[in-house]
Design a protein around this nucleic acid. Structure first.
Lengths: 280, 280
DNA sequence: CCACAATTGGAATGAACATTCCACATTGAC
DNA sequence: GTCAATGTGGAATGTTCATTCCAATTGTGG
């Protein structure tokens, strides 16, 4: 009767696994060492490949990969691969570790604390996402477009209204003429009727889209007034009638989204426009 | 005999595919449009998931995913999935490059890019700061206080108004009665005169403080109505008349502050209050 | 040199998977 | 209202895959 192989629990995150691999590197048999080296050198390949393709690249047998994973407590290769995939997903935000740490002892905390931490984490992720998603060239073009306008019309309803109202406040301070559309019902269309092609509009709309905003943006675009927009999906009706459009996907916590990333974007746009005017 | 379906060559990279999807989004049938929207909104899920799991998330059949891919010239779903995986590989590297560029000198970049990166960085810092500054116990007390109120009065002017307007929007969705103060001039004091000690108020004010907000908060506190406040300094006139108060110091870029951290805080507070009410 | 254990290669297996196919539903034309 | 065409759901299919198992090989202590 041989010894019982102790069923150790596998690492829960990539960094722990990485540490475990490094620690046991010396004591592993030849082929497993080979796998260890390959895994640490080509983590992306592990994440995407199949056992067969990885085995080929690492010059071992697929079964060796399974044995390797089992050495570290996983059921099989697939379990280990999950960590490599998670790493790739989360690489953009270094706050994931922290979030996980927060979630682990989440049971002991008050619910409000859990919600608070959730929104903090979501805000971080949102900002990382928008930082990666906004192309500098497109941003520069949008700034130029709006800086050249006589009056900037800010179109936003409902969930996006707070953003435009803050932009209106900041534009006021910066002495940039703008007109907030959507503030009091009724006069919006009259206001927009006064816009000319030497003006410009900035429209914001998130799903579920306010049809009014889309209609107003379309109407302006049809009259030759350039429209720049901020939205949360390429499918937004705003995207198709905009000269430039930006996508911001606010991470959500429990289905609710804050406007953290949108706010940062809005301020960057506002200040950039004012700065461009001041210089030019 | 029907027409021969033209064997078009599939897109070779993600951006081309994305453009193709956007271009044809209008002419696609219902379920395929659904897939298109899901694919562009959740590209990471497409990259990692299996046809079955993705189909579940997107609320379609696996076969629909295959048909979708075939619409764009791929043999099947797997071919399309490869592009999503490639994107993920490249994105992480390009994001890292961007961070590196951000850390280096911004001289070569357009000014708007520098400003944008500045606000992104400021938003990150702000959120870190507020995460550390808010005490869980105080937050829980504030939530309890406001959850027990019949009507929540939201007091905010100028720079803090966008936050309260978003809270009002969210409270409306969550069926929590609230009253936004400061929306139209004149009637504010009449509104506040109706508040009773079974109500509560949430006041927001940043330097330079709107004296009106402080006066209103003081008046409410004097009449026994509990006030919770969010401000940017312990010396804020709001702090002294509040049962609970929180400090959020938004990091600034070139003297301008976004509201990223405040927004995250506001949403956490709003959702926590609604959740507490729902539970009992 | 032998016995024994540890390690490895590779075929066998069964599960998971993408894909195909067909019946049914929906849409639009006449 | 009827019919054709297109779109859709879900079961059937054949493939790919991870995993297991066992024989072969290598290493090791006596």
């Amino acid at each position: 009767m041989s010894e019982i192989t102790a069923k150790i629990t596998p690492p829960q995150d990539f960094d722990t696994l990485r540490a475990a691999i490094l620690e046991r590197r010396g004591e592993l048999p030849k082929r497993l060492t080979q796998v260890a080296a390959y895994a640490l050198d080509h983590p992306d390949d592990i994440a995407f490949g199949t056992a067969a393709s990885i085995a080929l690249s690492a010059d071992v047998q697929p079964s060796t990969l399974v044995r390797f994973a089992q050495q570290f407590g996983f059921d099989g290769f697939s379990g280990l691969q999950l960590l490599f995939r998670a790493r790739l997903r989360e690489r953009t935000s270094s706050y994931e570790e922290r979030l996980r740490a927060l979630e682990q002892d989440g049971a002991a905390l008050a619910e409000s604390t859990t919600i608070f931490n959730g929104f903090i984490a979501a805000a971080h992720r949102s900002i990382d996402t928008i930082a990666a998603a906004v192309e500098p060239d497109a941003f520069e073009r949008a700034v130029t477009l709006l800086a050249n306008a006589e009056t900037i019309y800010l179109i936003a309803k409902r969930r996006s209204y707070p953003i435009s109202s803050y932009m209106a406040y900041a534009f006021g301070k910066l002495k940039v003429r703008c007109q907030l559309v959507g503030t009091s019902a009724g006069i919006d269309d009259d206001l927009l009727a006064m816009a000319t092609p030497s003006d410009a509009a900035f429209a914001i709309s998130f799903s579920p889209y306010a049809s009014e905003s889309a209609a107003q943006a379309r109407a302006l675009a049809a009259r030759g007034i350039p429209v720049v927009s901020l939205t949360d999906s390429a499918f937004s009706p705003l995207a198709e009638c905009s000269r430039e459009w930006f996508e911001v996907v606010e991470a959500d916590h429990a289905g609710f989204r804050s406007l953290s990333a949108s706010m940062a974007f809005a301020m960057a746009l506002t200040v950039s426009i004012a700065e461009k005017r001041r210089r030019g």
